[in-house]
Design a protein around this nucleic acid. Structure first.
Length: 563
RNA sequence: GCCCCCAUCGUCUAGUGGACCAGGACGCCGGGUUCUCAUCCCGGUAACAGGGGUUCGAAUCCCCUUGGGGGUACCA
């Protein structure tokens, strides 16, 4: 195998925030194919839009990819990934290279400078549109004579560089998933390859980078299918090798709308409109506005402006809504497992060809193929993802889960670590394991563990609470009263002894109906009707807190009786 | 408007001319188990978008219609 036969794939996102699930799937497929073919998987940052790029944003998805287990051989260096001999791997650091090729095209008469401003072009487009005409650039600048061009250049008149359509009837290329693709030359346009600021457009950058980085296979989303004609044209003009192309379909929201990073802002704007909010609402429990004044007006001015993630989160909290999960990081926060996400994502637009659904990265690596990429777009079903996550969590052993749970809580809910010992958190993880669908979904119902004993409230206006405490003869309070001395006497406070004595108690006093005993106890220690299994709950809480909470609960009974 | 892509249960999909009165998974509905919540178990529901061809035979091939999506940027 020679160097040029080596399979080299790349994932080339623009650095606008965290990695979204669509991008993750593309990266996953590129990675799987490269690994399968013993090739290289390259990560390249396509930051050719000065307005959109920022360093901080690009780091976010390095972390996301790494977390998913998608490791790149070449690209930005990050925790053992990246490096490589074909860099730099940021487009913004390759401007000289693009300029060289653009000049080469101009010199060869295959591209030319055009002096119209984007405002002029927009106006022309509008006119064409109004008369239902198809707009095409009229090549006015191509007809300029040399002296005029020279004069414009001397005057410093801004210009773009346009690719000159070749004198052929049609452009064709092969797509590995969709077959032969053909576009008549009159359906295309002299597209821009260098912007007025001297930066390349995506089309030029991508073609040059793919060539220089020896990319052999380009796997990307369907949104690039018609761009490929431009890319192929550039490759031919520059005498570049054409990579193999494969375009996967897009991933949509359940309502059919395109799943995009904008969805968060969209949800916020919708809520702002519905609630008729005029100034930024304040963060609950404080006077600070969720969005600073100047940012608020900036954001509302134009619909294409996006709030940064943290601000968006606090605005969502202030508005009382939850933001749609569209980024890999959102799912990480919500307690999804990376293996589950990659598994589920693989199934969106690809299938192994039998009834197999649960598989890992290794399987994907061994079985991935272009011809099994599904052509129809897929809707992202969060419910099914949840079900997958649930299955995966239940398939883990308790210790493994509890360790992950502890890590998760440490990162995303530090207030637990502040109140509970490492051992208690592990116990909590174990206790929550059977009832968890994600690493996060039982955190909210576990809050009572970190509350002060005196802060637990017994709200007898809640039907289930009232029923467990006050219904029947004897009622829940009576049981609590009887259990108190018994629990106080227990020598070793652990699951076994608690189980024995409470079961015995239920047998003797509640006709063996364990629920009659467990539920009042649960309410006494948690204030509510939801908790892990009662023995686990009591063990984690410890004897002192348990007894204190029981006493407080009974004290409230006195108050009720007095009324 | 123009160009392109796509079309199987609600959703993700299996299906590559006969093994399909269409299989799996998630959801949903009904029943059961359980100390709460969550589970778990059993049963059930549900699709080849429509219309023309081709063929002995079509979910599978062709055409049209309809519907969905992408592109049409000095965004990527």
């Amino acid at each position: 195998m020679t160097e040029s036969d080596l399979v080299r794939t790349r994932f080339a996102p623009s650095p606008s925030g965290h990695l979204h699930v669509g991008g993750a799937r593309t990266a996953l497929f590129c990675w799987a194919f490269a690994r399968q073919q013993s090739g290289k998987f390259i990560l390249r940052i396509e930051d050719t839009d000065q307005k959109r790029s920022s360093d901080a944003a690009s780091l976010g998805f390095l972390e996301d990819l790494k977390w998913l287990g998608i490791e790149w051989d070449e690209g930005p260096e990050f925790e053992g990934c990246g490096g490589g001999d074909y860099g730099p791997y940021f487009s913004s650091q390759r401007l000289e290279i693009y300029r060289r090729y653009a000049n080469q095209l101009i010199d060869a008469g295959l591209a030319y400078r055009a002096f119209e401003s984007s405002e002029e072009l927009d106006a022309a487009r509008k006119v064409a549109r109004a008369s239902k005409q198809n707009y095409r650039y009229d090549r006015a600048s191509l007809r300029l004579n040399d002296t005029t061009v020279q004069r414009f250049l001397d005057e410093g008149k801004p210009y773009v560089v346009r690719m000159k359509l070749p004198d052929v009837e049609a452009i064709t290329f092969t797509d590995e998933v969709r077959g032969e693709q053909k576009a008549g030359i009159d359906e295309l346009d002299d597209f821009v390859i260098v912007k007025a600021d001297g930066w390349p457009t995506y089309h030029l950058a991508v073609v040059v980078d793919d060539e220089q980085m020896q990319v052999s296979h380009v796997l990307r989303g369907q949104e690039h299918l018609s761009n490929t004609f431009k890319h192929v044209m550039l490759q031919d003009a520059l005498n570049f090798r054409r990579p193999v192309y494969a375009h996967a379909s897009l991933i949509f929201n359940p309502d059919g709308s395109k799943m995009s990073k904008r969805d968060k802002d969209k949800a916020l704007r919708l809520s702002v409109r519905e609630q008729a909010v005029t100034a930024s609402p304040t963060i609950p429990g404080s006077n600070t506005p969720a969005v600073k004044d100047e940012q608020w007006t900036w954001w509302l001015e134009r619909k294409d402006r996006q709030l940064d993630l943290d601000t968006a989160e606090s605005l969502a909290t202030a508005l009382g809504i939850t933001l749609p999960e569209v980024n890999v990081d959102d799912y990480r926060r919500s307690g999804y497992l990376p293996d589950v996400l990659t598994n589920y994502l693989s199934l969106l637009g690809w299938s192994p060809g039998n009834d197999m659904e649960k598989f890992d990265l290794e399987f994907l690596k061994n079985n991935f193929s272009f011809d099994r990429i599904i052509k129809a777009p897929a809707k992202f079903d969060r419910t099914k993802l949840l079900a997958f996550n649930h299955d995966a969590i239940q398939a883990m052993d308790a210790d493994a889960f509890s360790q992950l749970f502890a890590d998760h809580v440490q990162t995303y809910h530090p207030e637990f670590a502040a109140k509970l010992s490492a051992e208690q958190i592990l116990l909590l993880g174990r206790a929550n394991h059977p009832r968890s669908k994600t690493l996060d979904d039982q955190v909210a119902s576990s809050r009572f563990f970190i509350m002060d004993d005196d802060a637990i409230e017994y709200d007898t206006s809640v039907k289930a609470v009232r029923k467990a405490l006050m219904n029947g003869e004897p009622n829940g309070y009576d049981f609590l009263e009887q259990m108190l001395p018994m629990l106080r006497e227990i020598k070793s406070w652990n699951t076994e002894t608690l189980e024995t004595s409470l079961n015995e108690f239920a047998e003797r006093n509640a006709e063996g109906k364990f629920g009659k005993v467990a539920q009042p106890l649960r309410i006494a220690v948690s204030g509510g009707t939801i908790s892990p299994a009662i023995f686990d709950t009591l063990v984690i809480l410890g004897r002192e807190s348990t007894l204190r909470r029981m006493k407080r609960c009974l004290e409230q009974r006195e108050v009720l009786n007095d009324v």
